[in-house]
Design a protein around this nucleic acid. Structure first.
Lengths: 342, 342
DNA sequence: TTGAAAGCGATACCAG
DNA sequence: CTGGTATCGCTTTCAA
């Protein structure tokens, strides 16, 4: 049953029927009622293909997932992020168009989306520091929102990112409030944008507490379990070892945990550990722990928020770019314990 | 740039330009060349919205993912399956339309797809024994392929399923060839379709080897790690314990492994274990083991094959239903060892 | 408040 | 081999 047939049944014009169904105000309530009832009776559903052609909107958001040759597996971060976004899309009547491409075809896939009018907007995940996609999409003139930031890129663009500084600052303050003064900071490589922000958070917390930072307690390296382990082993071997650790990712914290156990210390009692993370790229299989679950749920929430921002942008293309510092829930380590004074 | 403008530039009709671009044979090669060059020059891309309306095909495959309230996480099986399918879609010019719905909205979402003409076909994952979706989709008259089978459903439908019998038969034969005669079989609940098939495979292998089945070596229960563990503990405590185990899923095998270790036995030396699995629904986080990786890759292959079958079905709606017994690679346990005679 | 008719941007039939 | 024109099913002016 299409609009033409339905309107014939009702002895009304397609125009009126369409208006009645789409909630236009200028329709007589009586006719609107007739129309909606007939529509239900005949199970009329507007054809999306026709509708999208007429309106110029596809009511669909594109996600392009590059499938690296090195890492054949689709990173799990995508499934949670997408789950969060997908529910929001559904709520707003949008579909999600997902394309899986080989890495080299990624930019072309975006162009395809844009030029053929296949989607109304796209979400960019896991940007690099000077991500090529951003200016590419800007040129294509298609609404998009980036999850994360590419700090090397000057031109403004819409993004959602966690408040890295604040998160680590909060974590550090928490340890301070437990009475720790020698707090180690295991960070990612500080050439990375977010790592610098996290370092700032750590330093800010110490400053507030009037504790001078101690360079020997701060490490910066690739985020991996072995790196976390090695750094923690060194730190625990100091003459004045730290009583607590702030880790800049779950994977580093896992390394710290191993080091603590190997030193026959008890985590949460002898040594406190707290970590912050907002991504699971580096954690393909961390098990079914509450920590991991919390992280996944946080990623999902980010997906939902990104989706909202994008829909907002699509509907108001002239509004300011939707930039947002996202207050991810603090995902923290197993137990921080009572602190050294207890 | 749209078709109208392009044809105006070329002083040709839209018809001719369209035909030239779509490879119709009745076009002069010279004009075709002119057209394709102009198309490249002006970066012409046919608008998908218009094309889908004109052709009646949306060039898109629907996947509906129910997001259970109990299990908030999107099961990983979906990401691997979808990755496999997605690459095939891309190869054939299809997109994937993904909708995430609350469980209760699932059937309505399928209806929406079908009646609005949003997708050309759908894939049904994880069917239950008497899955409602199957007859529902058949009524909707939309091409679909089921990954797995719903054995309670009589009406024919397209599916792809692993050869459960053959897989377990092969596994059992392998153990027999190593010299094992007392081989335990840990199965899923034998009210389930696939579990019965697997049991048949086990029995068939024994029969071929003229070994009478021993009921005391066969267990059937929900597939979970604790159930695998308990069954194996009991079996290992027999006066004549089995020297090998066939497990009907990875998760059961993990339980067996624990039991073996608790008995201070060595897996692959004192006791051989082999398992078959084709799904990871029950294995949310099995770690980064080669076994798990192999299983994921197998799931991905199944996704790709399902996608091919569906595309086939869409293109030849009158061909016989695409049913296929899928020979999944045998995913086997850590080590089967040299066998008891070595 | 309603309707006729013109798009939207392609494809495809039927002539020439 | 090429072109005119109807068509896909809906939305959206513009008139009445």
């Amino acid at each position: 049953m299409n609009l033409k047939e339905l309107s014939k049944q009702l002895n009304l014009s397609q125009t009126t029927v369409s208006r009645a169904l789409n909630g236009y105000p200028e329709v007589n309530e009586a006719t609107r009622k007739r129309v909606t009832e007939a529509a239900r009776k005949y199970r009329y559903r507007p054809n999306v293909r026709a509708r999208t052609l007429a309106t110029g909107k596809s009511m669909s958001i594109g996600h392009i997932i590059p499938m690296s040759k090195q890492n054949e597996l689709v990173n799990m971060v995508f499934s949670d992020f997408i789950a969060g976004a997908g529910l929001v899309y559904a709520d707003h009547g949008y579909n999600m168009t997902l394309t899986i491409v080989k890495d080299d075809d990624e930019l072309e896939a975006y162009r395809g989306f844009a030029e053929r009018g296949a989607v109304d907007g796209v979400i960019v995940q896991a940007p690099t520091r000077e991500d090529r996609r951003i200016s590419f999409l800007a040129d294509l003139d298609i609404p998009f929102v980036v999850h994360g930031r590419a700090s090397q890129i000057r031109a403004p663009y819409g993004w959602l990112d966690v408040n890295n500084k604040r998160a680590i600052q909060t974590a550090t303050k928490h340890l301070l409030s437990l009475g720790h003064h020698r707090i180690a900071m295991l960070n990612g490589l500080e050439t990375l944008d977010f790592a610098v922000r996290r370092r700032d958070g750590y330093l800010a917390a110490l400053r507030e507490a009037n504790i001078p930072p101690d360079d020997s307690l701060m490490r910066s390296n690739d985020m991996s379990e072995p790196n976390g382990y090695e750094a923690a082993m060194e730190l625990l071997a100091l003459k004045a070892p730290p009583t607590a650790f702030v880790a800049s990712s779950m994977i580093l914290a896992l390394g710290v945990k191993r080091a603590i156990e190997e030193n026959n210390l008890e985590m949460g009692k002898d040594v406190s550990v707290i970590c912050f993370d907002d991504d699971i790229s580096y954690l393909p299989n961390a098990g079914d722990t509450p920590l991991f679950t919390a992280l996944r749920s946080s990623v999902r929430a980010a997906g939902a928020r990104c989706a909202s921002l994008l829909i907002e942008r699509i509907n108001k293309p002239d509004a300011p770019l939707p930039n947002e510092l996202w207050e991810a829930e603090l995902v923290h380590g197993a137990s921080t314990g009572p602190g050294p004074n207890a």
